[in-house]
Write a protein that binds this DNA or RNA. Sequence first.
DNA 1: GCCGTAATGCTAAACGTTTAACATCAGCGG
DNA 2: CCGCTGATGTTAAACGTTTAGCATTACGGC
Lengths: 325, 325
Amino acid sequence: MPENPSRSPGPPPSRRPTLRQVAQTAGVSIAVASYAFNRPDRLAPTTRERVLATAAAMGYRGPDPAGRALRLGRVGAIGLIGSAGAAGLLDDPATMLIARGLAAACDRAGVALTIAGETAPALDGVVLVRGAASTYTGAAAAIAVDPADATTLPRIGADVRAGAAAAAAHLAALGHRRLVVITWPEAGGRLVGARDGWGSSGEITGYVAAGTSQADGETAARRALRAELRPTAILALADGLALGALDAARQLGLSVPADLSVVGIDDLPGSDGVGLTTVFVPYLPMGELAGATLAALMRGDALESPPLLPTALTLRATSGRSVHG
Amino acid sequence: MPENPSRSPGPPPSRRPTLRQVAQTAGVSIAVASYAFNRPDRLAPTTRERVLATAAAMGYRGPDPAGRALRLGRVGAIGLIGSAGAAGLLDDPATMLIARGLAAACDRAGVALTIAGETAPALDGVVLVRGAASTYTGAAAAIAVDPADATTLPRIGADVRAGAAAAAAHLAALGHRRLVVITWPEAGGRLVGARDGWGSSGEITGYVAAGTSQADGETAARRALRAELRPTAILALADGLALGALDAARQLGLSVPADLSVVGIDDLPGSDGVGLTTVFVPYLPMGELAGATLAALMRGDALESPPLLPTALTLRATSGRSVHG
DNA sequence: GCCGTAATGCTAAACGTTTAACATCAGCGG
DNA sequence: CCGCTGATGTTAAACGTTTAGCATTACGGC
């Protein structure tokens, strides 16, 4: 049995050639070889051609980014860092939108976008999301997007507090007097916004779910709807939770919005499809702004956090006048 | 001796400290400082503590990944590369799913995921998608996912040809005799699969759209439905196109599936919501498989392309028996 | 008293690149 | 013929890290 399938039979170890080797075979100094790739006008055209040809013949694919990064002090990539890890970040719809906005900014700046958990490779700058702001210990320039906890970093955010207030006020204006707020531990300003917007329009109770998943929302809503004096409105502080509440209502045979109004916050893709009344949070622009702000920070421009981006109540089919109570 | 008086003037630029400086201030050799971070057991506990304390006091955040990458010959990141650039990749739903699968594999392997266009930073390995397979000129280990064009790289793919055949056969079995296939330039095996599955079940015409967007599909479908002998079925070779076809049908007042059956390929998130009959393509598993395969490739395991992943026709609400013609 | 061994620290050589600073030389105006 | 300028090539010093290999101890067994 051919155990070792031709491990590069020749004497030279089958490693990728280095710039020095290219220079040597081409009969020039290593500086010239380098110039051939990065500074064409620094060389006589014929020399440059010769070097490039030699390189191609040797299978040299261009300067090694690692060596280049070390020498140049810049990598050509920025990071999106969150404690959930790469998959955790991409699986979360909101973070996903931030990533897309950031990616657009990256393309414009000509750098790559690296997605990682706490353990990150070499990066020129990082955008911290989902709880990473407090634990990140890298060296690069950093900003935080939508940080749940306190941080001294420059931060990008949206005015979710105002959005939550608008949502609660909307329900109050529709005549609802018994509201259930479904929240989760990292809801931050959303919760206080909701309270503010509701004011003293009636009874308000809160259920705190474990996370923002649809299952979390369903569990919480089911419990809330079991109350003897059933609420007429649910304000779920995240769209995932709201979707779960819709499930629960359907299971209990409640019709929305006749028997129960449901309002969310986020306006994720898909919320439109099910007609969810919700608060639009500009995650995509937040990502782009994060990119631009990080670029400024890396450039060394003195920087304070840009103002919060506005949110907007988006009326759809799941909220209506209170008919009961 | 070379006492160069023309040093950079002024105070030392407040750069981030280097390992050498930490070692110096701690009064140890640089090797010891390095060991303090990577090889705790190589040092006397008290020494290690002292070094770490000094480092913390100096604001040293740990070894610079760039230097480390150069020395170690490994970066700690793999790339997802496509000619569309980072935003282009993340904006495409199918590629997005591949990215999520790949991200899961990355988390398992403890490496970061870098998303980039043709110009990539230092990477240990790359997954090439969306036409990058032919143009990529990096040095790292590489595999191609779902490559439209020919490549000698190991490749990951799904059996979309069989899927397309099943979809066409499904429509034929429903009694349709006039089929329009909406395709696009990079449809690859899907087109031949569709032809195969249809066989000689009746008339078959093709419209080729520019891309796979919903708008592309709408345009193509509108043109197709203007034919004097209207087709009773549309097989859109991508879900985006199918969604567009649904739009066109609605605008023309055709009811689906009574007047027109529409079938797609991809089963993107969202296709379920609108009830689209389509062919499930396992993009997420493809991403995971790509990660695992790339890992094997980087480990040096001899490698041939793994077999195509199976696809599956998924019946929903947009396909039904032909009632006309 | 001696030797073997383990623990601990140090020296120095990479890793692959870029780029100041300098050397050389041809051309050329004076 | 002289010195200046520009074009072209070279030398060598970084960039920040890891890790073989060696030097120095301390210590226990004999």
